[in-house]
């Protein structure tokens, strides 16, 4: 519970943060809300030699509707997303997810950009980003969400690259996010998100593999007119979820089907 030694600097602009990260070298890390990074550092599972604190980068703290898209700055806190009138009107599923992240402390400190950069398999927003084909905008490029998440805790980011914004398509139709947890504040053992678009249903699953997945099999069956119970039988097709102390892979596969069906039934 005692982190290893590290250096620390505070940035107030994207430009400054990227420069500091570049100087920090490959063992440098960005710290935003710190709700995932600090516990790992306290256990010495993560031992960055340098932390660049971006809490002072005000230019990344915004929520902008932009035509058919919602641009969300990386420094948006969960609590802000959960309460934002704009988010609740333009992409209510994001607000619903934000309101269920961790506990009040996590929601107050944690940021959207941090969730993307950390890329925990049980993270909630990544599922939404992948299922809706969102785009991750960094200081130097735009990366489709489905390419951004590469593996467990592994993203397409360079070591000195900063997540600046995530661009989600606007979606106001029926939606629901259900996550199965043992305790209210836990990460999802499995999560299922559904969103109806003009083109049909989008379905995403959390913690059913190292990265978030879009359950295209379910989407296709729904498009073909299948009822939710029948469509959801395909939820875990082709997936190899983890087996761990919380749940076996077989149970996760079962949960994916149940939660997807319930999310579709409850979508509003």
């Amino acid at each position: 519970m005692i982190p290893a030694a590290f250096e620390y600097s505070r940035a107030t602009s994207v430009k400054q943060a990227v420069a500091q990260l570049g100087a920090a070298g490959p063992e440098g890390k960005v710290i935003a809300g710190g709700q995932s990074l600090l516990p790992l550092m306290r256990l010495r599972l993560s031992q960055p030699t340098y932390l660049v604190d971006v809490n002072g980068v005000r230019e990344l703290d915004y929520i902008h509707p932009d035509g058919q898209f919602l641009r969300v700055g990386a420094m948006s806190r969960h609590v802000t997303l959960a309460r934002s009138e704009v988010v609740r009107a333009q992409l209510p599923l994001l607000a619903e997810m934000a309101s269920q992240v961790g506990d009040a402390q996590v929601r107050t400190r944690g940021t959207l950009g941090g969730v993307f950069a950390h890329a925990d398999a049980a993270g909630d927003y990544p599922t939404l980003a992948v299922m809706l084909d969102a785009t991750v905008v960094t200081d130097r490029r735009r990366i489709p969400a489905r390419e951004f998440f590469q593996h467990l805790f592994t993203t397409a980011l360079e070591s000195d690259e900063l997540v600046c914004e995530v661009v989600f398509p606007i979606a106001r139709g029926p939606h629901r996010y259900l996550k199965f947890r043992r305790r209210l504040y836990d990460w999802a053992i499995v999560g299922a998100a559904v969103q109806q678009l003009d083109s049909g249903w989008r379905v995403g699953l959390t913690h059913m593999g190292p990265t978030p997945v879009r359950a295209t099999g379910v989407e296709e069956r729904l498009s073909a007119g299948a009822a939710p119970p029948e469509a959801c039988a395909a939820a875990a097709d082709g997936l190899e979820p983890p087996s761990d102390v919380r749940a076996s892979a077989a149970y996760r596969r079962h949960l994916a089907q149940v939660l997807t069906r319930r999310a579709l039934e409850q979508a509003a």
């Binding site: 516990p39 256990l43 043992r182 305790r183 209210l184 504040y185 102390v245 919380r246």
Partner: peptide, 16 residues
């Protein structure tokens, strides 16, 4: 030991 942190050793909270 697999349950070496409070993430995996499930002490319930008031919510449960």
């Amino acid at each position: 030991l697999v349950t070496a942190t409070m993430l995996d050793y499930l002490v319930p909270t008031i919510n449960e």
